[in-house]
Design a protein around this nucleic acid. Structure first.
Length: 824
RNA sequence: GCCGGGAUGGCGGAAUGGUAGACGCGACGGACUCAAAAUCCGUUGAGCUCACGCUCGUGGGGGUUCGACUCCCCCUCCCGGUACCA
């Protein structure tokens, strides 16, 4: 059995040449990228690993899988595995020991900010080049502020007072993308609240169309579900926007957006969002004022979840005003209602109950008229009809199909200057400010005289001050540091106030891979030529949970930085492979759910390699995997069997002439290598492991066979075994490599090449079917001719029994695997 | 509701339209042992059969094909995303 010395040691400190350390919050998978192609000898392989849960290592996690996929990949293209200065697998930082208070869920870049303040040397301890060890040491410099100012100068960063998502547990605001599931915090699972706060945003909405358009070429390169998720998230819809005059207040208008201008003749009322600015304006001083205020207050108190629940009955209130339908010239009652959101479109709608179920629900509850403007089919028994059909009750639109009617109605609005065709997106601007200590400070100051200004270049980066209390408490902990807050205006030199919010970690991960193309650059985020050389990333690997988070933000950053001249590419990741999540007890593994597998006992018992191998073996990496506490037994036993061959059984081999058994086992070895190579190429790691297990079984059968093992044969076979195991179980493989007398560094060994002739099967089992049912099996040479196969099949006694005296109607031959005899 | 993806033994899962269930877990039987662990050998989809074998079987129903887990149509259920988005 693999000595516990090795198992234990390698559970924590992998040997030279392959320090893959597990450091990832459970339930998430890291991103990793590598460069392939004509320059395949160079592989860039950093991993963006959000930092750990305050523990140095987390073992029982798919993270283990993540470092590996990109490792074997380049083996099959061009030059062999990259040399020391070509491979850079970045290891996440260890927890900053000097700062015990830091939020353990925060990441690497913050540490870098601090370190630059105190240490002269680059933060090598946290970002280490691991594979190879001799190359340049990437380091991260605090250049986020530079990029932020670039965004500011380009008009893509702004501060706004707005209703935002607030996580009461994290004590900070969140981006829309970070509110997941039923309105809970992506990070901690706490239900999110709405608060009105001054916050910083990046104008990702300016890029909505491009982000959508550029998904198209990624078809086939990115998983379909990620493309679809992003499409839905961006949520483009086409329609028309037009204004309606308030009948009681000539000169006052309300803008509405609709995707169905063709149904305008069916408008029987109009609705404003309760937060709509016009509401207060209209009812001020009227008898409605108090009642409206009460209603608005009640609605805004509802949680987002309650308000958006489709189960809930719609509630509204008549404002006492009417809006004039421009199509009919007639006024319709104006309501406020909870089902209309201020945050989409214009915050106001025309309501057409005949063609919209939500409006139908509201109309029936408040007894409002319903006019159909699209004729439903005869057998239609629903309520609102949203399908296609001829327009009715719509004057000049009557008889037209929906598409034509939409175009005609829109043109009608445009001709009269009443409205315009309009594209609406669901995507909203990216909220980037956070009330956390551990983040890059937003490099802005506010001067009472000159307003908001970026921190001048020579004062960058803004470093995090040392403060006593790092805990989040509703506003940035930095705000409590008077010394930090007080600064001077870059324009007038007068007293000014420093921004105290920090940036979302997703800002960092949006461009980290760019930085890794030029990690040592002290003067700029990265060199344009270097970025252009490496990017886009050929193969990116990440978790599905980042479909609309990291992967959307990174695309946005790439386009912005491309527009600003930092690099050329428009898309960051050429090909994307998304891994599933690891689940346990039916839930995504996470600290908050308390179903995390504690790694240490597994390391102690099985060693890191057996656990790693089990992760590969669990199933297809695209699927969610279910952790099974005893499943690791299998891979553990397998490794031990291989180990025993090296560490014991090999000694029993003899020098003798090769026999048929020797040739056969070599054939198996080459066949396995071919299979494993192919499996790795297509990310089918579970079948690669299965192939290795089969190979191991064959090896043991060979050693136990007559004549025992021949030394030379076994040496060759084991060398191949170890080389194939190396990417998956580096520690044990490395040890075996040395035991078997090799002096080279295993990690630097090229991936072996198989002998096509040896890998080919000599004989195969040919199946003989009668009418598609297997009736016989015959061992035949792999190169058997169709004629020979056919007559062999017909000669089979079993087949003859089915044939009787008759002749087959048809004989289908697929050499060398199958013959199907068709009778009657 | 809409969109995407699934459904294969007790379990995780294999299978360019061509031997369904590779590989592993678990279970059962056996060897070794005073005993246990570890290890090794064997069996393990269901049913029928003394046996050679036969029948059935990849969520359900149709279809295409010499042949369907695989392709097409309909349905059921499960998972994920999203949801008063006008």
């Amino acid at each position: 059995m693999v000595p516990s010395r090795i198992r234990r040691r390698y559970g924590r400190v992998p040997p030279r040449g392959d320090r893959t350390e597990v450091a990832e919050s459970l339930g998430r998978r890291a991103n990793l990228l590598c460069r392939r192609g004509s320059r395949a000898s160079q592989v860039l392989q950093p991993a963006d690993v959000p930092v750990p849960l305050g523990r140095p290592a987390h073992g029982a996690h798919p993270q283990l899988l993540l470092h590996r996929p990109a490792d074997p990949l380049p083996h099959h293209e061009g030059p062999q595995r990259a040399g020391p200065d070509g491979v850079g697998l970045l290891r996440p930082p260890r927890r900053e020991r000097r700062h015990q208070h830091r939020d353990p869920s925060e990441g690497v870049h913050r540490a870098a900010h601090r370190e630059d303040e105190t240490a002269v040397g680059p933060p090598r301890r946290r970002l280490r080049l691991v594979a190879g060890g001799g190359g340049p040491h990437p380091r991260v410099l605090p250049v986020d502020p530079v990029l932020f100012i670039q965004f500011w100068n380009a008009g893509l960063a702004y501060k706004k007072h707005a209703p935002v998502n607030w996580c009461p547990s994290c004590q900070t605001v969140l981006a829309n993308e970070q509110v997941v599931g039923d309105g809970v915090c992506e990070r901690c699972g706490t239900p999110v609240e709405k608060r009105n706060l001054d916050q910083w945003f990046f104008k990702i909405t300016d890029y909505a169309q491009r982000l959508l358009d550029d998904l198209e070429p990624l078809k086939g390169e990115w998983p379909e579900r990620v493309r679809v998720m992003q499409q839905n998230w961006i949520g483009r819809s086409e329609g028309a926007q037009f204004r309606m005059e308030i009948a009681e207040r000539p000169g006052t208008f309300v803008e509405v957006f609709t995707t169905r201008p063709d149904t305008s003749f069916g408008m029987t009322f109009a609705v404003l969002a309760p937060e709509h600015p016009l509401v207060g304006q209209l009812v001020a001083g009227t008898s409605q004022e108090a009642e409206v205020a009460e209603f608005v207050h009640r609605v805004t108190l509802q949680t987002e979840i309650d308000r958006l629940s489709t189960e809930k009955e719609k509630e509204g209130l008549f404002l006492g005003f009417h809006a004039v339908n421009p199509f009919t010239g007639k006024p319709v009652p104006l309501f406020i209602a909870d089902y209309v959101l201020m945050t989409y479109g214009t915050g106001a709608i025309m309501a057409v109950p005949g063609q919209d179920q939500r409006d139908w629900d509201f109309a029936t509850r408040y007894d409002l008229p319903i006019i159909r403007t699209v004729l439903p089919p005869d057998d239609f028994d629903g309520e609102a009809f949203t399908g296609d059909g001829p327009a009715v009750n719509s004057e000049f639109l009557d008889g037209m199909g929906v598409e034509e009617a939409v175009a005609t109605a829109t043109a009608w609005l445009e001709e009269r200057g009443l409205g315009t065709a309009k594209v609406q997106f669901r995507l909203r601007d990216w909220l980037v400010s956070r009330q956390r200590y551990w983040g890059c400070p937003i490099p802005m100051v506010t001067c009472p005289e000159h307003g908001m200004l970026p921190v001048p270049d020579d004062q960058l980066p803004v470093l995090l001050p040392d403060i006593e209390d790092y805990q989040p408490k509703g506003q940035s902990p930095l705000a409590a540091d008077a010394e930090f807050v007080a600064t001077s205006c870059p324009v007038c030199g007068g007293p000014a106030r420093r921004e105290t919010d920090t940036m979302d970690t997703f800002v960092d991960s949006s461009w980290y891979y760019m930085r890794f193309t030029d990690p040592g650059n002290p003067a700029a985020p990265f060199d344009r030529d270097k970025a252009d050389y490496w990017l886009p990333v050929d193969q990116y690997i990440g978790g599905i949970e980042h479909a609309v988070l990291h992967l959307l933000y990174a695309r946005f950053f790439t386009k912005v930085l491309s527009d600003l001249g930092f690099l050329t590419t428009q898309e960051p990741f050429q090909r994307l492979f998304t891994q599933g999540m690891l689940t346990r007890d039916g839930a995504k593994m996470s600290k908050s759910k308390g179903n995390v597998v504690a790694p240490d006992p597994y390391y102690e018992t099985y060693g890191a390699d057996a656990i790693r191998l089990y992760h590969y073996f669990l199933g297809p990496p695209t699927d969610d995997a279910v952790w099974s506490d005893d499943g690791v037994e299998g891979t553990y036993r397998f490794l031990n069997r291989v180990w025993r061959i090296v560490d014991g059984e090999a000694a029993a081999t003899v020098d003798r002439d090769p026999t048929g058994a020797d040739e056969e086992i070599l054939r198996v070895a080459h066949r396995t290598l071919k299979r494993v190579s192919g499996d790795i190429d297509r990310f089918s790691f579970n079948t690669a492991v299965a192939a290795l297990m089969e190979y191991g079984n064959a090896l043991r059968a060979y050693l136990a066979g007559p004549g025992g093992g021949r030394r030379e044969t076994l040496d060759a076979c084991m060398e191949m075994m170890i080389l194939m195991l190396a990417p998956m179980t580096p520690h044990v493989a490395h040890e075996m490599w040395e035991i078997t007398g090799h002096t080279s560094m295993l990690a630097a060994e090229p991936w072996p090449a198989w002998d096509e002739e040896l890998a080919a099967l000599e004989t195969v089992t040919m199946v003989v079917q009668v009418n598609g049912k297997v009736r016989d099996r015959v061992e035949v040479p792999a190169d058997i001719t169709e004629e020979a196969a056919g007559s062999l099949a017909l000669a089979s006694e079993r087949v003859r029994a089915y044939l009787g005296d008759g002749e087959p109607d048809r004989v289908i031959v697929r050499v060398p695997n199958l013959v199907n005899v068709v009778v009657r």
